[in-house]
Each structure stands twice: as structure tokens, then as C-alpha cells.
Simulated scan of single mutants.
Amino acid sequence: MKSHLKRTAVITGGSRGIGRAAAVRLASDGYNIAVAFHSNEAAALAVADTIRTAGGSVISVKCDIADTDDVAHLFDTAQDAFGRLDVTVNCAGDMTVGPLVEFTPEAFDHLVAVNIRGTFLVSQQAARRTHPGGAIINISTAAERQAIPGYGPYAMTKGAVEALTLILARELKGRDITVNAVAPGPTETDLFLRGKDKNLVEKIAGLNPFSRLGRPDEIADVIAFLASGTRWVSGQTIFVNGGMN
């Protein structure tokens, strides 16, 4: 049964990490949830089971966010299931790091496809479909301002996300839709930990006043705030990094 009274959130990258935490948090806040996943169906189904067990309404949808038809299908499926769209959380992304002089064009093109093209396509569909009072929330990175060597191409793609976020917020004038970006610092996710040894992780964790990595649920707290209906925060990038900047 479609729930036309409950708010609905589409969350890309919702099977793991920050996306998973955001899906579970928004479900606990009473949202219908559409969890979009790229390849890990088992993880997406596990998130859906967690939400259903807690009494929430959820669907999972396979989606390549760099593919126009896939993204349209994702939003069509969410609206068919729940009857409306209120919040989009664009968590899907990838991170490859390395010195610029050694970075391959192929690796760069992949980051552009996922982090820039994907954000463009998802934001475009969200802008067309979101109900008044809704929110579009993109994910950037604190690495852009921390200027850590090796993060250049990745931070470059996230700078584009921040630019789109600000301009889209202004383009939606009169629609009562907020558009913001959340920029996490180093967070304990598979994506961040991939390829890093224990010593490097501890070194990075020691760069903030709390001397630890962030937790996905701490990022989800800020996402939930932006989704909650606050209307006087829009066009902003909110850094969530424990004071690392």
C-alpha cells in the first residue's frame, strides 16, 4: 500500500557506510526508504531487513548512478511504491587516492563518472520530483579543505558537487526545497579504510581533536537534521569532521 502521508527518502549508496546509516536513521524518523545499490545486493537486502524489523517501509533498487535510465528507474520505482518524494540523499560515490603525477586517466574518468555525473543525474531527477518542503542532500568531503597530498582528483570531483549544490539551491527558488552538501572527515567506512594499513589510519585519526575516526551514524545525524524540514539552511556545505579543519 502506498503511504501518501509519510515522507519518502531515496538514498543512493544506501547499502553500506554513510548511506546505510542514513537509511536506518531516516527510517527511524518515520520515512519510507528507497535504498539504491550498485552491486552488493546482499548488503542492500540486509539494510532493508533491518528497517522492516524495526517497523519501517523500505524497498531496494539496483542502480548505476552514472546511467541515465537507471537513475530515472530508481525514482520511478520509489514514487510508484510510496506515492511521493521528499528527500534525496546522494551518498553513492567512490574514492581513489594517489599522487597526481601517477594518477591514471582511467581512474580519473571513473571518479568523474560516479562522483560528478552521478551527482548530476541524481540531483536532476530529485529537482524534478521533490515535493515542497523537501530536501536534496549531496555528499562532499572534508578532504577538499584539508589538502592532504594524494587526494587531489577525488577532492576535485567533490568540489564540483559543492558547486552544483549551491547553484541548484538557487535554481529551485520558489519551490520550498533545500539543497545542501554534507562534507565528512575521515569516517570509519569500508570506502575510507580500503587500502590503508593500521598505522596510516591511526595517523589520520590523530589529526582531529578527538583523535579518532568519525562514525557513519554521526554523519547520518547531520543528514537527518537537513532532511527534517529545517528551511533556513540551503546552499551550504556542512563539514562534519570533529574539528579537523
Rank of each mutant, 00 (worst) to 15 (best):
A205V: 09
G17L: 11
D86S: 06
G243T: 12
V240Q: 05
T230P: 00
P216N: 02
A23Y: 05
F75V: 04
C91K: 03
I137G: 07
M1W: 00
Y151R: 02
N199R: 13
V114R: 00
D109I: 01
I11Q: 08
G17I: 02
A135E: 10
R20G: 08
S60L: 00
V179G: 07
R231A: 15
F103W: 03
D76S: 15
A78P: 06
H110M: 06
R170Y: 04
P184N: 11
R145C: 02
L85M: 11
I223C: 04
A72M: 04
A78H: 06
L100F: 09
D94L: 14
R16E: 14
A21S: 11
D221A: 15
I148E: 13
D221P: 01
A147I: 11
I238Q: 07
I18C: 02
A169F: 08
R129V: 01
C91W: 01
V179H: 04
P132H: 08
A163P: 03
T96K: 14
D76C: 07
G134L: 07
A135M: 08
A205I: 05
H73L: 07
V61Y: 04
G98R: 05
G206D: 06
D80I: 02
R212Y: 06
F103R: 00
A72W: 01
I148N: 11
V122Y: 01
T53D: 10
G56L: 10
A143S: 15
T237C: 12
R129M: 02
V112N: 02
T12F: 04
S39G: 04
R170W: 02
F120E: 03
D80E: 12
S28L: 10
S123L: 00
N90F: 05
A181S: 15
V161A: 13
A27S: 14
A107D: 14
N208M: 04
L168F: 01
I167Y: 05
T119Y: 09
A155R: 03
L111P: 02
S39Y: 00
S211R: 14
A127D: 09
S60Q: 02
A205Q: 10
V233G: 09
I148C: 00
Y154N: 06
R129Q: 07
R84L: 06
I59S: 05
Q236R: 13
G56S: 11
L191D: 07
D64G: 01
G17M: 07
Y154F: 13
S3L: 00
K173T: 14
G83T: 10
T12P: 10
K62Q: 15
A127S: 13
G195V: 05
L26H: 07
A160P: 08
V89W: 10
